[in-house]
């Protein structure tokens, strides 16, 4: 388990106390592609320990992810073709809107995120002090990745320490932005999404959380060096093309 700290100026909500009233229940969205090793335990933990409804968006998995998630108590949405992590999250957001949810919490299905962090990440959004909260643990990444993040921050002016964390909470204002057609063609759920939210006037806060190493091996999003290179070039283009003066 990685004990994570944010620089002091970002450490606004380090408390892990749960604060969820009966009327403020978020939908938990888990995008998943071939995560049958972890999805069952993860959904079970959320359902039994946190008690929030869970939707698993099965991103055209070739294994038993959908069946295992359904048995564990999640509502499963299976995509006919692979849309990627952001496409899957957006599908979950559309579903949340159709079911009347005003709050959503997203997390990765590979076991990196501690289920008990959900409440602390959701807290500032539930109380209305921010539109988006990101569960941050910048210490989990390599030096090279941190340098790349620094580059992206410099170009965009985004003052976010953990740019790629998938552990996030959103309120209705930010969900309306992310449901839009403009958000559809984003390939990753980091810089492009954050810039879109910033341009729409959504406030974004980071919450220090603990994270674990990925439970089952290598990254699904960046399995090869070529995919990493593509990500860097694509994100640089987004940073330059979509940045605006502060």
């Amino acid at each position: 388990m990685l004990r994570c700290k944010l620089p002091l100026q970002y450490n606004l909500h380090a408390s892990s106390q749960a604060l969820t009233s009966q009327s403020v229940v978020p939908l938990v969205i888990l995008p998943a592609h071939n995560e049958d090793q972890t999805i069952g335990l993860l959904v079970d933990e959320i359902v039994t320990r946190v008690g929030w409804p869970v939707v698993v968006v099965d991103d055209a998995s070739s294994d038993q992810t959908a069946a295992i998630a359904a048995r564990a108590g999640a509502h499963v949405i299976s995509l006919a073709v692979r849309l990627g992590a952001w496409g899957s999250v957006q599908t979950g957001i559309h579903y949340a809107g159709s079911r009347g949810f005003d709050y959503v919490v997203t997390m990765d299905a590979d076991g990196q995120h501690d289920v008990m962090s959900l409440a602390s990440v959701f807290q500032p959004v539930a109380t209305g002090s921010t539109d988006v909260a990101i569960g941050a643990c910048p210490q989990r990444v390599s030096g090279l990745k941190r340098f790349t993040w620094h580059l992206f921050r410099s170009i965009t002016g985004l003052k976010i320490e953990d740019l790629t964390s998938g552990l996030r909470a959103y309120n209705r204002k930010s969900l309306d932005v992310l449901e839009s057609p403009e958000a559809t063609l984003l390939e990753y759920q980091d810089i492009g999404v954050l810039l879109l939210l910033r341009f729409a006037g959504c406030s974004i806060t980071e919450v220090a959380v603990d994270m674990q190493p990925r439970r089952n091996g290598r990254s699904r999003v960046f399995p090869t060096f070529a995919s990493v290179l593509y990500y860097v070039m694509y994100t640089l283009l987004i940073c330059v093309g979509k940045r605006k003066a502060q």
């Binding site: 968006v57 509502h75 499963v76 949405i77 299976s78 995509l79 006919a80 073709v81 849309l83 496409g87 957006q90 599908t91 559309h94 579903y95 159709s98 057609p181 559809t184 063609l185």
Partner: peptide, 24 residues
């Protein structure tokens, strides 16, 4: 092509949600 990709992606999402509703 970009426009069609956006339309297609939203269509795939909508169908998946409808299918899950039907299964439920």
């Amino acid at each position: 092509a970009s426009r069609m990709e956006r339309v297609l992606q939203r269509l795939v999402q909508r169908i998946a949600i409808l299918e899950s509703d039907s299964d439920e």
